[in-house]
Design a protein around this nucleic acid. Structure first.
Lengths: 166, 166
DNA sequence: GATGTGGCGAAATAATATTGCGTCTGAGGC
DNA sequence: GCCTCAGACGCAATATTATTTCGCCACATC
């Protein structure tokens, strides 16, 4: 099973750094119950082995002037691999598109977009997204409000699972 | 306009910390072109005023055993505020639900969910989500692959906008 | 029971964060 | 035009943290 190369201390470290990525190493060591040097070694190992992909400040979108958040459900005309890849590459190049997931079912892609205001998004939608090659249809839904936006993963679910299989 | 209380250096700090939240203050100061003490003062101010909501390690979901990611489109029977809030509260309590956004249009909510495997998600879907009070219908779409998942905001868009209005 | 591997922690050192303070610049009042 | 003051800067000093070094112990292998 994936993740089983990690011991409980490693998972504890990941959970703590997921919750507060700027915690000092001494504080982290205290919380997971080991001393600072081995704790730092574990963190470095987790970083190098890819368990930790990076650290990011969580910046308030509204405060910064990004008032609008939109989900766009995209259907393509062709689902040939070359066409899927081409669309993904286009998404990566659009700064307003923050996430692009390929889905099963009738919708091919779901995009999470941000914009400073509605007109900026509308311009993007009509001039770029809908107009792009191979795009059959785009259905957009404005985010009215956000009830939950937890970064990362539920470590409690993971722990429960591992204790069962043990 | 929102964000205009920030000068270019502040925005530069936000952009850098969004890209690498664990950058040392001396490195950050070097990049934004001021000395360390005022740089740290600015970071603290940005944290206290809520521009920076927190810092998080980005943990690899697959490596940790979360193989499955799903978007769930939920419609409710009643859209009265009390019923909306009740559903949101339930979402906050479900660990597999990482994001819950209220949308305009025919879909009331979109949920981003993770799970260790498909059967775990199916159990959650049938026993919890679909079975919850006031839920009229749930349409789920499995994420086949993720082409883009950028944390945070496009600062280049913001800078372009501000330079135009100047 | 010898031996090697891996992880731990104490101590020392290097780097970083943080505080205190003197200086400069720009806005507003006289 | 000049004075004053608030805000922000940078230097230098100090406190805290990160990082390296090294010896010790537990466990698995033979």
């Amino acid at each position: 099973m994936a993740g089983s190369k990690l011991d409980p201390i490693d998972r504890h470290i990941l959970a703590e750094l997921q919750a507060d990525g700027r915690m000092t190493n001494v504080e982290l060591a205290k919380r997971v119950g080991i001393s600072a040097p081995p704790c730092l070694r574990r963190v470095r190992t987790l970083e190098e082995s890819g368990y930790i992909k990076g650290y990011h400040a969580d910046v308030d979108a509204r405060e910064l002037g990004f008032e609008v958040q939109v989900f766009a459900m995209v259907r393509l005309q062709s689902q040939a691999e070359a066409d899927l890849s081409a669309f993904e590459a286009r998404c990566r190049a659009w700064p307003l598109v923050r996430e692009c997931h390929m889905l099963n079912g009738e919708i091919d892609f779901i995009l999470k977009c941000v914009a400073p205001d509605l007109s900026t998004f509308q311009s993007f939608l009509t001039a770029e997204l809908t107009a792009a090659d191979n795009v059959a249809s785009v259905k957009t839904s404005l985010v009215i409000r956000c009830a939950k936006d937890e970064p990362g993963l539920p470590f409690d679910v993971l722990e429960a699972r591992l204790s069962k299989s043990a």
